[in-house]
């Protein structure tokens, strides 16, 4: 997901000085579905896990603006241009809601920006893939936002109040994102042969990376258990991935597209789709910085940030001047 459980090396051991009874009280609150709010006592590991998860989520939204933002100036109709602008704008907004939620845990926006731009922080692997055609915009809305929704709806019930509330807001806005993506694909599939080919090509390139968004298989996800206990994570990676496949295959059938997976087939006994092996080596390479667009994404954000430094300084300087003026006048 946008929160693929990346970077969770469990560096902190539970502090021996953390009062055992406070930990128990905390767990009791979480078990009771009480929300934890910013100034409440929380275990250091809970705080740090959340900071990492929420900031990764925020970074993903911000980086995610780039592959789609690419096509704003080339959108094939004014309506599509307007919709894409609104979608990318929503993504900026989601990033901002999430940075805001993360800041309640004691980390600043500047620190998080530094972590992102220095390459220390991770963001969802999916955004390291290129948008080569207009159909990619459809595929991203349909598959990537579709996958995100799967994860985000349960997070609306996450134990940490500000994160849960941010997710409620995000989910309200997200359903239009998926629908507009599917509509793009639908129209292409009803169009010319060249358009159908464009749609199938986009699906071929985005399907497997979308499945990888859900993170490593449960057998290889060693830190999920604690996150589940603390209600930061509510379903396992494999569960969500299966749900996504089951929901999406019929959608593809409906418009005459085929997933690029020869092993994909309906399993009558299990009531789910069986699907092929994911190439986890590709996933690890992309996470390590060797995806098609990792460098370009980082460069774009670094450039924007450094090119914007004089602007931010000017605004701060002006604000100081105004404050000085009014305190002198007072």
């Amino acid at each position: 997901m946008y929160t693929q459980g990346l970077d969770q090396k469990g560096k902190e051991s539970p502090s021996a000085s953390e009062d055992e009874s406070r930990l128990q009280q905390f767990q009791a609150r979480v078990d009771n579905e009480e929300k934890i709010e910013p100034k409440d006592w929380m275990p250091a590991k809970y705080r740090n896990t959340l900071i990492r998860q929420i900031s990764q989520h925020a970074h993903s939204e911000i980086i995610g603006m780039l592959p789609e933002g690419n096509w704003i100036t080339r959108a094939p109709s004014l309506r599509r241009k307007a919709i894409l602008l609104a979608k990318v704008q929503d993504e900026a907004g989601h990033g901002l809601y999430l940075y805001s939620a993360a800041e309640t845990l004691g980390i600043s926006r500047n620190e998080m920006m530094d972590q992102l731009l220095s390459g220390k922080a991770k963001y969802s692997s999916i955004f390291n893939y290129p948008t080569l055609t207009w159909a990619d915009i459809g595929a991203i809305g349909w598959l990537v936002d579709g996958a995100a929704i799967m994860n985000q709806i349960p997070l609306c019930r996450c134990s940490y109040g500000p994160y849960a509330r941010a997710m409620v807001r995000v989910c309200r806005e997200e359903s239009f994102h998926q629908r507009q993506g599917y509509e793009i694909m639908l129209v292409l599939c009803r169009g010319s042969d060249a358009q159908k080919r464009m749609a199938q090509d986009a699906l071929n390139r985005w399907w497997w990376p979308s499945l990888m968004m859900f993170g490593p298989g449960d057998a290889n996800s060693t830190h999920s258990a604690q996150s589940m206990a603390w209600k930061i994570k509510r379903f396992s990676n494999d569960e969500l991935r299966q749900k996504f496949v089951d929901a999406t295959v019929p959608q593809a059938d409906h418009i005459g597209l085929k997933m690029p997976d020869p092993d994909l087939k309906w399993n009558e006994d299990s009531g789910h789709y069986d699907f092929g092996e994911i190439d986890w080596s590709e996933f690890m390479e992309v996470l390590a910085g060797n995806g098609p667009c990792n460098r370009e994404r980082m460069q774009a954000r670094q450039d924007a940030h450094s090119n914007g430094a004089w602007v931010r300084e000017a605004a701060a300087a002006y604000a100081r001047k105004q404050a000085d003026k009014s305190s002198k006048a007072a």
Binding site: L66, V88, A304, R312
Partner: peptide, 20 residues
């Protein structure tokens, strides 16, 4: 619309996208 993804601050990108 060209500014999206390249603004000096996220909040400004949001504003400019609105104007676009």
């Amino acid at each position: 619309g060209e500014l999206v993804g390249h603004g000096p601050e996220l909040e400004e990108e949001l504003a400019v996208a609105n104007f676009a």
